[in-house]
Each structure stands twice: as C-alpha cells, then as structure tokens.
C-alpha cells in the first residue's frame, strides 16, 4: 500500500492506496466525495472530470498515487462559500443544462476549465471543447446555452 496526501477542495485528505487505485476511486471511496462519477472504463465519457492543479483531468486516467501532493477540485467545491450555486452551476440550472444529472459534475468541471482558458468561446468552440464529455439526456443544446450564459456573466 502507498500512503498519499492531497488537498481536495481546500482540505487535506490522506489515505493508503494500492498501486492500481484510480484517483476517481480514491475520491469516491476514501474522500467520500461521490459527486464525481464513473460512466465508462475507457476514459471516453468524462463523467469523472475534476481539476488537478487547476487543469481539467479525467480522474479515471490517473492513479491516486500520481496525485500525491496535488491540489484537487471536484464538483463539491464549485459552490460559493455560502453554499449558493456558483455562476456555472447556476447557469446550468437556469438553462436546463442537465436532466439525469449523472454527466453533470464532469460537464461543469469541463465548462469551468474552458472558461478559464477562453472567456468568450463561440458555440463551435464550446462544442469542440466538450468532445470529451458525453451526455445522453440533453442533446447538448441547453448545455451549450448554459455555458454561453455563464461566459457572458463572467465577462
């Protein structure tokens, strides 16, 4: 077993993991943060997208041991300090950018990463950026609208 410590949503989390333990499993099982979801086993669906040291990463593509010492952000850390929805989360609600909610945490994390890189993305740029996140419910229409609205609000 390997001992790892990382900062998750601003708080230190430690645990002993097997070499093969995926970061997503560490977050869900050791850190108890079940908002990050597993939708596939080939790193295609993006439901497990989180931020590692500020960059969007599919947490099924990383071993927990590789994240030792990293700064991690998950969907549980995206709300405002008072618990209200952050700008991107609120835009998803306002524009009906989610239905079953399973892909949603990954979508929000990818959207946050996109808007950090590109404050004013076009529809085509949003659609291209979301290639790594599969949604089966919404047809993406309202997800795109939500991200456009969040971009406008964030200026």
């Amino acid at each position: 077993m390997i001992s790892v410590t990382m900062t998750v949503n601003g708080k230190p989390v430690s645990g002993a993991v097997e070499g093969r333990t995926l970061l997503v499993d560490f977050l869900r099982e050791t850190a108890g943060l079940t908002g990050t979801h597993v939708g596939c086993d080939t790193s295609q669906c993006g439901a497990c997208t989180i931020h590692v040291n500020g960059r969007a990463v599919k947490s099924c593509t990383m071993l927990a041991a590789e994240a030792d010492g990293a700064e991690i952000a998950t969907i549980e850390g995206m709300a405002n300090p008072d618990g209200s929805l952050g700008v991107i989360q609120a835009a998803f609600k306002e524009h009906h950018g989610l239905q079953c909610g399973f892909c949603t945490p990954g979508m929000v994390m990818s959207a946050a990463s996109l808007l950090a890189e590109n404050r004013n993305p076009s529809e085509a740029e949003i659609r291209e950026y979301l290639e790594g996140n599969i949604c089966r419910c919404t047809g993406y229409h309202n997800i795109v609208k939500a991200i456009q609205a969040a971009a406008a609000q964030l200026g």
């Binding site: 079940t34 549980e76 989610l98 909610g101």
Partner: peptide, 12 residues
C-alpha cells in the same frame, strides 16, 4: 432537483 445534481449531492 438540479441543486443536488449540480453540487455533487445526488445519490445514485
């Protein structure tokens, strides 16, 4: 229902 899904509090 969106609030719980958007904050990682859904219970699947």
């Amino acid at each position: 229902e969106d609030v719980r899904f958007l904050t990682g509090k859904g219970q699947y």
